[in-house]
Computed example of a mutant assay.
Amino acid sequence: MQLFALKTDLLKAGRMSAFLEDHYICIGWPGIGDLERMEPDEAMASLAKVYRLEGQELADRMQEISMFAYGMADGDYVLVKDGKDIHVGDLGDYYYVEDADTPEDGTCHRRGVTWLKTVHAEVLVAPELQRLLHEERAIAWLDRPVDKVTLERWLSGAGITEPGSEAGAASAIDQAPVDAATLQAALDILKAALYSEDAERRERAAVAILAYAKP
């Protein structure tokens, strides 16, 4: 599964009490239409027209929207910061709520969430989670898949291991730099996936490449 971190204050969609009660998250941006019925280029054109965005600002906002609508998938996990608490959820599919597509509401673009637990931010000592939660992006994405066992270990406060231990060796491997040839091979695979007949595979490849290219 993939692991995401959502900063609702940066998305201007900070309604944490409603998110927890009604089991969803959203990204704002009302007025651009149902993203499930659009290709990414159509969504970008609508975003530019409605909000008069262009250049880098348009690219940055479209990256957030693409990550939410096309990059996340059912079964991925999300961390949502709420003051000193971190809410952990199992993501569902994207869905569009037409009645909420107003400037006053603005919660029209949603993903269902099964909330799993809430942990205190100070518990999350794993370097991977620290980096994810401190990225200055509205939606941050861990650059590798995470299994449930590893995530549970991180959420329990684990993350620092003794040198020489088996877990420590695995951690060292995870953090080892990737050589240029391996990195290029991985990028070639992602580029090839952009032309897959599977729409979901194309979208996730596009999101991966955008995340890699983002400074």
Results as ranks from 00 to 15, higher is better:
Gln2Ile: 00
Thr8His: 12
Asp9Lys: 12
Leu10Glu: 13
Leu10Met: 15
Leu11Asp: 05
Ala13Ser: 12
Gly14Asn: 10
Met16His: 04
Leu20Pro: 00
Glu21Asp: 06
Asp22Ser: 13
His23Gly: 00
Tyr24Met: 10
Cys26Trp: 01
Gly28Ala: 03
Gly28Phe: 03
Trp29Thr: 00
Pro30Ala: 11
Gly31Trp: 00
Ile32His: 01
Ile32Cys: 03
Asp34Leu: 07
Arg37Gly: 09
Pro40Asn: 14
Asp41Trp: 09
Ala45Cys: 05
Ser46Ala: 09
Leu47Thr: 01
Lys49Asn: 08
Arg52Cys: 06
Glu54Gln: 08
Gly55Pro: 03
Gly55Cys: 07
Gly55Tyr: 00
Gln56Tyr: 05
Leu58Ser: 10
Asp60Glu: 11
Asp60Cys: 02
Arg61Phe: 07
Glu64Pro: 02
Ile65Arg: 02
Met67Thr: 12
Met67Gln: 09
Phe68Met: 06
Tyr70Lys: 11
Tyr70Glu: 03
Ala73His: 12
Ala73Glu: 04
Asp74Ala: 14
Tyr77Gln: 05
Leu79Phe: 08
Lys81Ala: 14
Asp82Glu: 15
Asp85Thr: 11
Gly92Trp: 01
Gly92Val: 11
Tyr94Asp: 12
Tyr96Arg: 03
Tyr96Leu: 02
Ala100Phe: 01
Asp101Ala: 03
Thr102Ile: 04
Pro103Asp: 07
Glu104Cys: 00
Asp105Ala: 12
Gly106Pro: 03
Gly106Asp: 09
Thr107Met: 13
Thr107Ser: 12
His109Thr: 06
Arg110Lys: 14
Gly112Val: 00
Val113Tyr: 01
Val113Asn: 01
Thr114Glu: 14
Thr114Met: 08
Val119Lys: 14
Val123Gln: 09
Leu129Ile: 04
Leu129Val: 05
Leu132Gln: 04
His134Ile: 06
Glu136Val: 09
Ala138Asn: 01
Ala138Phe: 02
Asp143Lys: 05
Arg144Leu: 06
Arg144Phe: 04
Pro145Ala: 05
Lys148Ile: 07
Val149Gln: 14
Val149Gly: 05
Val149Lys: 15
Glu152Leu: 01
Trp154Asp: 01
Trp154Val: 10
Leu155His: 11
Gly157Phe: 01
Ala158Leu: 12
Ala158Asn: 08
Gly164Glu: 09
Glu166Tyr: 15
Gly168Asp: 02
Ala169Ile: 10
Ser171His: 11
Ala181Val: 13
Leu183Glu: 14
Gln184Asn: 09
Ala185Glu: 15
Ala185Asn: 08
Ala186Glu: 15
Leu187His: 07
Asp188Ile: 08
Ile189Asp: 13
Ala192Leu: 10
Ser196Leu: 08
Ser196Thr: 01
Ser196Met: 06
Glu200Asp: 02
Glu200Phe: 00
Arg202Pro: 00
Arg202Phe: 13
Glu203Thr: 06
Ala206Ile: 07
Ala211Gln: 10
Tyr212Met: 15
